[in-house]
């Protein structure tokens, strides 16, 4: 039950020292560009950039190694699924067909399909280092302040902070509840029939939800008493003004994004073909 989570560790690196808001803006711009472009050249450049930034950040391999396993499995399954469902998707996208070898039935591996799936792989690969980095190198205390800074309503921004604050507490509740449920004989494993398992999970969810509703009441009264939400604006203890390096980082990223868009749509198509 004690699953590992990705967590922030304090460290001295150029990435860590950027303000949370700057990192948030960079991450959003980065993800958007990676979503939009399908241009192999852009994606390769972005991948190299993201790996370089990852290097600079000095994040330790052990801090994220365990998610790579999840990512890899997901990656493989997804690629297998794409091929199974649509072995000739690449041919449709690029409009040509170069057969490599035949597998049987409707399954033929084409160069276009390989290239197409290579591009999909690149698209993930470009976002993942930046996403990991955003999480590992940004102090969660800065999340809410950063969201508010980029224009999110401060109350909504604060709810993100509350979620982060109470995830460990809720996990502990969930553990305690499911332990005591198991002691009473509630079985959630495959040994039980599905219909019984569904009923059993309700016996764990109900106490969890009811005690969470109670928790919501307690926290709301505490926040009322401490003057939350009374003003139009609110300041942040952890908020930081933008520094020169923040402006430089955001400037670089925005120009990269602009360049990506121009290169991608220069010939009127999202896709870049080598065929």
């Amino acid at each position: 039950m004690r699953a590992r989570m990705l967590t922030f560790t304090r460290q001295d690196s150029p990435v860590h020292s950027l303000s949370g808001a700057a990192k948030l803006i960079c991450f959003i711009v980065w993800s958007l560009s990676a979503m939009i472009t399908y241009d192999t050249r852009c994606l390769i450049v972005m991948l190299l950039v993201s790996l370089a930034v990852f290097r600079i950040s000095k994040v330790k391999f052990a801090d994220y190694a365990f998610v790579l396993y999840f990512i890899l499995i997901f990656f493989l399954l997804n690629h297998l699924a794409i091929f199974l469902f649509s072995p000739l998707e690449g041919t449709q996208v690029y409009g040509t067909r170069h057969d490599l070898f035949h597998l049987g039935g409707r399954y033929t591996v084409t160069a276009e399909q390989v290239f197409y799936q290579f591009n999909i792989a690149l698209k993930y690969a470009v976002v993942i280092p930046m996403a990991l980095l955003f999480l590992l190198a940004t102090d969660p205390s800065e999340f809410a302040a950063s969201l508010n800074r980029i224009g999110v309503n401060y109350k909504i921004a604060y709810s993100v902070s509350l979620a982060l604050r109470y995830i460990p507490d809720i996990q502990r509740d969930y553990e305690n509840i499911s332990f005591s449920a198991q002691a009473r004989g509630i079985d959630l494993s495959r040994r039980e029939k599905l219909s019984q398992r569904l009923k059993n999970i309700v016996s764990i969810l109900l106490p969890l939800i009811l005690s969470s509703i109670e928790r919501i009441e307690k926290i709301s009264t505490a926040m009322e008493l401490r003057g939350f939400g009374s003003g139009r604006k609110r300041t942040w203890y952890t908020g930081r003004p933008f520094s020169l390096s923040d402006y430089i980082a955001m400037g670089l990223l925005l120009s990269l994004a602009a360049a990506t868009l121009i290169v991608t749509f220069y010939d009127g198509s999202r896709f870049y073909s080598i065929f």
Binding site: P140, S141, S161, L162, L164, R165, D169, R215, K218, I219, T221, A222, M223, L225, R226, G227, F228, G229, S230, G231, K233, R234, T235, W236, Y237, T238, G239
Partner: peptide, 28 residues
Amino acid sequence: LQDPDGQFVGLTVGEDIAFVLENGAVSP
């Protein structure tokens, strides 16, 4: 309040102490 976990809304001690001041928009 009685239940410290319900009242402690900040992610760190510093943020929680600052909560009232943040809500009153006191300068950093």
